[in-house]
């Protein structure tokens, strides 16, 4: 680790003042950042500890939920309103990492966690445009089992690793952001970026900006929702493919639907084409397969990840059938 100064911010105002300094970085639970510091992927001059700030979950006037950025992942998954009205969010969190890590990890840090592309971590031996812009991308032509099939660029084919964020993408969440003298909100779908020419930027957050909360709107379709994750072992592994889905039926027809995929792109992938094709349609395996085919029509396959569109499609069929019959676990 390169040397840095550590400060614990007493409140949000102090945090954004400290975070405004060049070379400053915010510290949540540390479960990703400490690793990145140790590997010298991250080399901040100053850490501003925000893990003790914004730790509350409160119901909003219009029936949604305001989740403080410092809320731990375990506390969010265990919250009674989340379990009852947004089960997809509880299930996505519980499918991620381990209990110890979920006890440490904050909501803000989870949104900002960086890719698990192994070349990104390999400071000694690999070229990586996300770590060193312009150096190249050793994932291309290398091991790409966990890499993207949608929305990637010549510069970077990494995926976003979060499970929780896939649920938040399906739920139309809103990110509350603050910096010195200004606050703003960002729709969840706009928060994470596609790599394009700037894979070093994962999100639209500007330097010094602090996530203070994530807001969930009231969403009746979310009451019947779930998350399914496919991975190389049954627990404690990142997703190869994951599906967050919510479904409301009217007889045999889809009244409302939300779908997002994890493991396919540089950001949690809201499947608007799947939703558009299935809304108002009869929910058959053929219809779901055809809808998924639209979403993956432009998929760019790499050496080791050609299985992803088919696996995502099969997982989606299984998840929507389970939601339809009420077997959501």
């Amino acid at each position: 680790m390169t040397p840095f100064r550590y400060d614990r911010a007493g409140d949000v105002a102090e945090a954004v003042r400290m975070g405004n300094a060049p070379g400053a970085a915010y510290l949540g639970g540390g479960t990703n950042l400490v690793d990145l510091l140790r590997e010298t992927v991250a080399r901040p001059e100053r850490l501003v500890d925000v893990s003790a700030l914004s730790g509350a979950i409160s119901e909003t006037d219009d029936g949604g939920l305001l989740i403080g950025a410092g809320v731990r992942n375990t506390a969010l998954a265990a919250h009674p309103v989340v379990r009852e009205r947004y089960p997809v969010l509880a299930r996505a969190i519980l499918a991620g990492a381990s209990a110890q890590i979920r006890n440490m990890a904050t909501v803000g840090g989870n949104l900002m966690q960086r890719t698990r592309c192994t070349y990104f971590y390999d400071t000694d031996g690999s070229r990586c445009n996300k770590r060193e812009p312009g150096s190249g991308c050793d994932a291309r032509g290398g091991f790409t089992r966990i890499h993207a099939v949608l929305g990637a660029s010549e510069a970077c084919v990494a995926t976003h690793p979060s499970d929780m964020c896939v649920a938040l993408a399906a739920l139309d969440a809103v990110v509350h952001v603050e910096r010195q003298g200004a606050t703003r909100t960002v729709a969840f779908g706009d928060f994470h970026r596609l790599p394009g020419e700037r894979p070093d930027l994962d999100t639209v957050l500007e330097p010094g900006e602090l996530i203070t909360a994530v807001e969930l709107p009231a969403l009746s379709v979310a009451a019947r929702s779930t998350y399914r994750k496919v991975r190389d072992r049954a627990s404690y592994a990142f997703a190869l493919i994951s599906v967050a889905a919510a479904l409301e039926m009217e007889g045999e027809q889809v009244a409302d639907i939300r779908v997002a995929f994890g493991g396919v792109a540089h950001k949690p992938w809201r499947a608007t084409q799947v939703e558009g094709a299935l809304r108002g349609a009869a929910l058959t395996d053929e219809a779901i397969g055809a809808a998924a085919a639209l979403e993956f029509a432009d998929a760019q396959l790499l050496r080791d990840n050609a299985f992803k569109p088919a696996l995502a499609t099969r997982t989606l069929i299984a998840v929507l059938n389970a939601l339809k019959t009420g077997e959501t676990a």
Binding site: G30, T31, V34, A99, Q100, I101, N103, M104
Partner: peptide
């Protein structure tokens, strides 16, 4: 609460 001390400053 259980945590990982290797990822804790």
């Amino acid at each position: 609460e259980r945590i990982l001390s290797c990822l804790a400053l």
